[in-house]
Design a protein around this nucleic acid. Structure first.
Length: 300
DNA sequence: CCCCCAATAT
DNA sequence: AATATTGGGG
């Protein structure tokens, strides 16, 4: 057992959104097929602002009254190809994941805590424990993230590049990566020559740094009944900080496991019985794209 | 099987 | 533009 575990887990607890803060997306209760078929999402661009839990409850986010159909028509093109009107149940395509800053944050945390070495897609995914997240999602994101880190390193010290700016530190290149820029990149990520298991932050508890960003997690509204992220707390240790445990969904249950060594065998202890997840995972085949709607908290 | 990365595809 | 998918190599 590593004491560190309790450490960072504790930290995590703080960040964990209370169940109250989790905002269920509208379609959560709709039949997946239905949701998919109708493509319930914001056609335009404005993601529903899920107002923070300021006012207690929000009614079902009801917004886009119109255009659904337009979209539906547009993207249902593919859906129709496979007997969509009849027995769609299987072969559902999963919506594209949207990496909100919050989600990315969790990703970075996971990577940071795992240590670069153990941070491989599967592990990261497991640690993040966000429902609906697949290994591919993570792999793809990780790939991009690595490129980002590389860029940062390359440009950080000396010469400038010419990209307009010249000598600025880690060049904040243009639109290269807004998402990545929004999360603090743990130092160790940047230098390769370091011990592998360094994760605990010295003490840089982010003193007075920005605190504005409430950490709300993502609620994934995939085409499935209850797609919300759920983090589970480690059963070990003591996590009594969050008294909100009225969260009991009989359905999802992702359990966490601890990091293991990725050498040879990877005895991860498993994931819970997410039948729904498996369904989603295996589902695939035709094109109908939907968007995983993790809500962006209008705070960017 | 899983990982990684580059190139494509959507 | 942001993700997903594919393909080749380890």
């Amino acid at each position: 057992m590593r004491e560190e575990d309790s450490n960072w887990f504790s930290r995590w607890e703080e960040e964990l959104p209370s169940p109250d803060e989790l905002i269920p997306l509208s379609q959560s209760l709709i039949t997946p097929d239905l949701a998919l078929a109708f493509d319930i999402r914001n056609p335009n661009h404005s993601p529903l602002h899920h107002p923070p839990p300021s006012s207690a409850l929000h009614p079902p986010p009801p917004p886009p009254p119109q255009s659904s159909f337009a979209d539906f028509a547009a993207d249902s093109g593919d859906l129709g190809s496979e007997a969509a009107g009849d027995e769609p149940a299987r072969t559902l395509k999963r919506p594209r994941l949207v990496w909100t800053p919050q989600l990315h944050k969790r990703f970075v945390d996971a990577v940071a805590h795992l240590g670069i070495k153990n941070a491989v897609p599967k592990t990261i995914m497991q640690l993040m424990s966000v429902d609906g997240l697949t290994r591919e999602n993570v792999a793809s994101h990780l790939q991009k993230y690595r490129l980002y880190l590389k860029r940062m390193q390359g440009l950080s010290g000396g010469a400038n590049g010419g990209s307009g700016g010249a000598g600025l530190g880690p060049s904040s290149d243009p639109a290269t990566d807004h998402l990545f820029a929004s999360s603090p990149v743990p130092p160790h990520f940047l230098h390769p020559g370091r011990a592998n298991s360094d994760h605990f932050l010295p003490f840089v508890p982010v003193p007075a740094l920005q605190h504005h960003q409430q950490q709300q997690m993502v609620a994934a509204a995939v085409g499935h009944p209850h797609l919300q992220s759920q983090y589970h707390r480690p059963q070990m240790g003591h996590y009594g900080s969050s008294p909100n445990s009225q969260f009991e969904h009989p359905f999802l249950g992702r359990q966490t496991q601890q990091p293991m060594h990725r050498t040879g065998g990877t005895p991860v202890h498993n994931q819970a019985p997410n039948s729904y997840l498996e369904d989603l995972e295996s589902a695939n085949g035709n094109g109908g794209r939907k968007v995983l709607t993790l809500f962006p908290t209008g705070n960017d």
